[in-house]
Amino acid sequence: MKTPFELLEVPDEADDAAIKKAYLRKVRENPPERDGAAFQAIRTAYEAIQTRPDRIRYALFNRQSPELSSLTAQALQPGSVQRPEAKTVTTVLAESALATLLHTLK
């Protein structure tokens, strides 16, 4: 799970004004009527770091366990494509097609 700072895309040392500006920009990008869950996440993040006392509280007492998936996602971002062997492609294609067809015929 992203930190509120990451979610609002502001640095850890951002002030009230910068955070509010980032929040409004994010809300414009994710209006509640389009994606309620995303809006709620943005709202929660904003409330967690809205003011200086909020940010101190977050820095001191936040006990949200980081999610492994967000950690690995960065490490597993794709790099340059390495072209596979033709045999690998044809085998995967044939096996996949056969499995799909057998499933359909059942």
Binding site: P78, G79, V81, Q82, P84, T88, V92, S96
Partner: peptide, 14 residues
């Protein structure tokens, strides 16, 4: 499947 994983690893350049 393992072969598909191999293909994906290549395409993602891991």
């Amino acid at each position: 499947e393992n072969k598909l994983q191999t293909l994906l690893n290549k395409l993602n350049g891991y």
